[in-house]
């Protein structure tokens, strides 16, 4: 495999990142209302959220991608390969983030809510100043490991023609009749990106923990 091929595979990195960040951002945002519905005292909202979460998580991400791109994309609506992948991975991420948020919320000590009430803190301040920073700390490790998983799962995009790392590695393998080197190169790329994410999350977590350790 020549250096040209290596550079070609590397040029897939931006698309891998776009799909990953897009789906993650979508999940981070949509996970919040989903979690709010799930913990709502309103039984309709609660069961609706529960049903959505189970539904979204029960279907493999690759089937979601095919459903959106080949299913809906074949005549119902016009959807590109990249938006289809981002939405498919995004909705699954939303379901998982909703569960991660819920776990984080339940880890906040009941005494914190009592102190908020007894002090008479206004709702916006309670959330922004007291609950959110504590949620962030608890959510960070699980969200970071989910992000790493998502980064690797983004290779699904290659199945619908997004020219990401996996797609280009496959392309080079076919062109050069060498299966090992291009895929090994792609594997190294995935590793080189995953490790820093894990490291950064670990350091940030350790810093926060050290500050507020209980």
């Amino acid at each position: 495999m020549s250096w040209d091929f290596a550079i070609l595979i590397l040029s897939g990195l931006p698309w891998t990142i776009v799909v990953t960040i897009g789906a993650f951002a979508m999940g981070l945002i949509l996970g919040a209302p989903l979690c709010a519905m799930h913990i709502s005292r309103n039984p309709i909202l609660h069961f609706l959220a529960l049903a959505i979460i189970i539904f979204l998580r029960s279907i493999p991400p690759i089937v979601w991608v095919f459903l959106l791109f080949f299913g809906l994309g074949s005549g119902f609506i016009s959807i590109g390969a990249i938006p289809a992948t981002i939405i498919a991975l995004g909705v699954v991420t939303a379901a998982n983030m909703a569960e991660i948020y819920r776990g984080s919320l339940s880890s906040i000590h009941a005494g914190q809510w009592e102190a908020i009430s007894a002090l008479g803190l206004p709702p916006v301040s309670s959330f922004k100043d007291i609950i959110l920073p504590q949620l962030f700390r608890v959510t960070l490790p699980s969200a970071a490991s989910y992000l790493i998983g998502l980064f690797k799962d983004s290779a699904i995009a290659s199945t619908v023609g997004v020219m990401d790392i996996a797609f280009l590695a496959n392309f080079v393998a076919r062109k050069s009749f060498d299966g090992l080197t291009p895929f090994a190169f792609a594997a190294v790329l995935y590793i080189l990106i995953s490790i820093p994410i894990a490291l950064v999350a670990r350091i940030a977590d350790a810093r926060l923990r050290q500050k507020v350790a209980q």
């Binding site: 005494g111 914190q112 102190a115 920073p133 507020v212 209980q214």
Partner: peptide
């Protein structure tokens, strides 16, 4: 109010 378990904000 002062609680048995203090309930300070840890962060």
């Amino acid at each position: 109010m002062v609680f048995q378990s203090f309930n300070l904000f840890p962060h």
